[in-house]
Design a protein around this nucleic acid. Structure first.
Length: 278
DNA sequence: AGTCGCCTGGTA
DNA sequence: TACCAGGCGACT
């Protein structure tokens, strides 16, 4: 579900509410939540719920960080939890209405619930988060200064893939998902199927700015609540109110009035203006 | 580089 | 009933 702006909103909520709290206990009700649990898949580190509980109990939360769509919860013993919400994961500071996959209880009696209808999300406990493969492979943070036309030129060099899938590639830019890619391409007036390596200098410049703008704007609006996303307080974001392309199939383009079209590109539904986006 | 599987629920 | 959904990694 959540992309960079949603994950960042949750990170900020959590940082304001649970920083320096100590975990009294954690209950894991869905074993497949734990990365490395045998029930989850191949790469298993023989991690049991009891192992996990033992590593986390009594630890104090020293920092809440983010890389791309990952939340990094650093603990006082220098280890960390790396959390990914995938499509429908939620981190809630008040009791959820659907079954929780895990509950953290703090020594002051407050709690943090991990809720996740489709159960794709996961939590990894790691002694050395900076060296975890899932984080090391990530590309740059789009809002931390390096994103410009020159960066995109280098990143897209000889890429024979549609610009839409290049932007979803977390190894180039970390944190973009389908919503913001669709929005950014529309605002930059680039057709989603254009080959990444073939877009012009001018288009690259517009694209870099559009990406930063849609992400910053959405963080200000506390995320995009189209399907299930809510923040850590259970509240919806407002970004969807300002969407120009995502979810606008069949509606007139804001720039030229042509009806917006939808097509499937590398398995994802994309909406675009067939007239403006070249 | 594209497709499938992981899961569940909402909507046409 | 069928198709769709803010993701990602293992396949081909």
């Amino acid at each position: 579900m959540p992309e960079l702006p949603e994950v960042e909103t949750i990170r900020r909520d959590l940082s304001a509410r649970i920083l320096n709290k100590t975990i009294r206990d954690v209950a894991v009700l869905d074993l497949t939540l734990l990365t490395g649990h045998p029930l989850r898949g191949k790469l298993h580190r023989k991690l049991t719920v009891e192992d996990f509980r033992g590593r986390v109990k009594g630890r104090t939360i020293r920092n809440l960080g983010r890389r791309g769509k990952y939340i990094i919860m650093e603990l006082a013993d220098e280890t960390a939890l790396i959390l990914h919400l995938r499509m429908t994961g939620q981190l809630l500071l008040s009791a959820p209405s659907i079954r929780e996959r895990a509950v953290f209880e703090f020594t002051d009696g407050s709690k943090l619930w991990f809720v996740d209808r489709r159960r794709f999300g996961e939590i990894l406990h790691t002694p050395d988060w900076r060296n975890e493969k899932c984080l090391r492979g990530l590309g740059i943070e789009p809002l931390e200064g390096e994103l410009d036309s020159a960066f995109l030129k280098k990143a897209f060099l000889k890429r024979d893939t549609p610009i839409h899938s290049a932007l979803l590639n977390q190894q180039i830019l970390a944190g973009l998902g389908n919503i913001y890619v669709v929005e950014a391409l529309h605002r930059a007036k680039i057709h989603p199927a254009r080959k990444a390596g073939k877009i012009s200098e001018e288009q690259r410049g517009r694209l870099a700015e559009s990406i930063k703008n849609v992400l910053e704007e959405s963080i200000r609006n506390r995320g995009y609540s189209m399907h299930t996303y809510v923040d850590a307080l259970g509240k919806k974001g407002r970004s969807q109110l300002f969407s120009l392309a995502y979810g606008k199939e069949g509606k007139p383009c804001t720039f030229c009035g042509t009806l917006m079209r939808r097509k499937v590109l590398t398995g994802r539904g994309v909406v675009f203006c067939p007239s403006c986006q070249k």
